[in-house]
């Protein structure tokens, strides 16, 4: 698609797990160590909506007491774009007609849907993939139960949420499950495997890639 991807090797984690668990000072140190990794004025594409939300909305808050660091965090926040958003709205993703008919269920991460608007974007992305039919599952907007450390601190509740989510996704008869959030996918796929279900959630990037590959094979 004509884009060069740079991957600063020294990046680690956005710090969300510590931040949301009540250890913002630890998250701040982790974030601080990465403030200089993206010096060029390029967009920062995040393949997980909730990590994107952390960079965009919470990093600036972590450096309120330090003008220099805050300016850096603000610059990062400004340039942060969620992957699907970039692919749809900047690159103008559009595949040629004639893709294999596939029913897809889309799960959006809650924080990303609310902080990054990924529901509309995710739907738009799937709409650009001919042959792909979006199936809406019951209680679509409800959380999958991940919530970072919530899944470990309250496993019973988290499991009940994951299991309800998967039931309603399964009820759609979908061929594929797609999400733009690695956290949700970790949770959903771990639960699917434990249930001995053969369905696996795919990252939307992977899904788009496989549709692209299939369409170039088709035209070749």
């Amino acid at each position: 698609m004509g884009v060069t991807v740079h991957f600063p090797r020294n990046q680690t984690c956005c710090g969300q797990p510590a931040y949301t668990t009540g250890f913002p000072e630890e998250a701040r140190k982790v974030a601080a160590a990465q403030l200089d990794l993206f010096p060029e004025d390029w967009p920062i594409i995040v393949p997980s909506g909730s990590c994107g939300g952390m960079l965009k909305h919470h990093w600036p808050k972590l450096f309120k007491d330090d003008a220099v660091l805050q300016a850096k965090a603000d610059s990062l926040a400004e340039r942060t774009v969620e992957f699907t958003d970039y692919v749809v709205n900047v690159l103008g993703l559009q595949l040629p007609a004639g893709g294999k008919p596939t029913k897809v269920a889309l799960h959006t991460s809650c924080s990303a849907r609310r902080e990054m608007g990924t529901l509309d974007i995710g739907r738009a992305a799937l709409g650009r993939l001919p042959g792909v039919e979006l199936v809406i599952h019951d209680h679509e907007s409800e959380c999958c139960g991940f919530g970072g450390t919530f899944s470990v601190k309250h496993p019973d509740i988290s499991s009940a949420m994951a299991s309800d989510k998967l039931e309603s996704i399964r009820k759609t008869g979908c061929d594929a499950l797609v999400s733009a959030d690695c956290g949700c996918l970790l949770n959903l796929n771990g639960s699917l495997a434990k249930r001995r279900d053969t369905l696996r959630g795919e990252h939307i990037a992977t899904f788009i890639r496989s549709r692209m590959d299939a369409s170039t094979e088709g035209t070749a």
Binding site: C110, S111, R114, E142, C143, G147, F150
Partner: peptide, 15 residues
């Protein structure tokens, strides 16, 4: 102690 952690922070409440 277990109440503030009993949330996946999905944000539905605030919305």
């Amino acid at each position: 102690r277990d109440l503030p952690t009993a949330s996946s922070l999905c944000g539905a409440c605030g919305e």
